[in-house]
């Protein structure tokens, strides 16, 4: 099947895709009434920790932009989408083996639905950001600008990147079981390689260029652009677009190549 027909088929099946997304969210919130609270509590707690550590203990509120708390929050909310999505898409096929074996749907759907479900959780967590933005606006410490329009662009780019990464990881994990552990370690390293707690321009020069290969650097730049007046690091944004497109292509190709073998294994 060509990519065009695959996409068309997925579009036909959008109601099924939506059913799966709702199912994911429902399972997540079926067991705990505090479900929604957990989605926002985690990044909020992390933001509080980093804020205390860097702004008070190290007294380095200048490693990001000011207000540092907003700077952290944007990065951490996006990072939560990244880590949740990567961890779950790596297991996308294995964890739903029974379903994959019993329904004849384009198999990409199992990856897609996770990225979408985690994306919806991300969107649902945004009110926290809005709340704190209002607080800092009132205090006069935050000045929004027109580049806020880059925010949805960053969200789209992040979505595409996560789909690509998921398509790459899901079949590999199904075939090689310990990929999961490797992914977990890489994610932990990735957190510090991504400008979540610091800004790109704080990285010393020979290394700053290396940041371009990490699409999350450019994506966080886009997400933050509207909140801070600092100039946009265009190089990292261009890098993000290129790496995202390459990742998606690699993901689609890998998935198509390994699909047959994966179906025999699960």
């Amino acid at each position: 099947m060509g990519i065009g027909t695959k996409v068309a088929r997925l579009w036909q099946l959008r109601t099924i895709l939506w059913t799966l997304v709702v199912r994911d969210l429902r399972v997540r919130y079926a067991r705990s009434w505090l479900g929604y609270l957990w989605t926002v509590l985690d990044p909020l707690a992390m933001a509080a920790i980093y804020f205390v550590v860097f702004a008070f203990i190290f007294d380095r509120g200048d490693i990001g932009h000011r207000p540092y708390f907003i700077f952290l929050l944007v990065g951490l909310l996006a990072w939560q989408w990244v880590s949740g999505s990567v961890n779950s898409t790596a297991l996308a096929i294995l964890s739903e083996a029974k379903l994959v074996r019993s329904t004849n749907l384009p198999r990409e759907i199992w990856v897609l639905r996770i990225v979408i479900a985690k994306g919806i959780e991300f969107l649902l967590s945004l009110p926290i950001l809005v709340g704190f933005s209002v607080y800092y606006l009132v205090k006069g410490q935050l000045h929004l600008n027109a580049r806020l329009l880059f925010f949805p662009l960053g969200v789209v780019l992040l979505f595409v990147f996560l789909v690509g990464a998921g398509l790459l990881l899901a079949p590999v994990t199904a075939l090689v079981t310990d990929t999961q552990r490797v992914v977990r370690i890489l994610l932990r390293m990735g957190f510090y390689f991504t400008p979540v707690i610091y800004a790109v321009h704080h990285v010393p020069e020979p290394w700053r260029s290396a940041m371009w290969v990490n699409p999350l650097a450019g994506i966080t730049e886009l997400l933050r652009a509207g909140f801070f007046d600092a100039p946009l690091d265009t190089a990292s944004v261009v890098g993000a677009v290129v790496v995202t497109v390459v990742t998606l292509g690699a993901g689609i190709a890998t998935f198509a190549r390994l699909e047959r073998a994966v179906l025999k294994e699960i």
């Binding site: 099924i16 059913t19 199912r23 399972v27 079926a30 029974k98 019993s102 329904t103 749907l105």
Partner: peptide
């Protein structure tokens, strides 16, 4: 279209109620 009675409970989720499962499974099959 094919209705596979191969893994009957394949689409069912333990955590959800039977009612939710009926809607989800039938929905998954279109």
């Amino acid at each position: 279209g094919v209705a596979p009675l191969i893994e009957l409970t394949g689409g069912f989720l333990g955590e959800l109620t039977a009612r939710e499962n009926i809607y989800l499974t039938a929905g998954l099959h279109g």
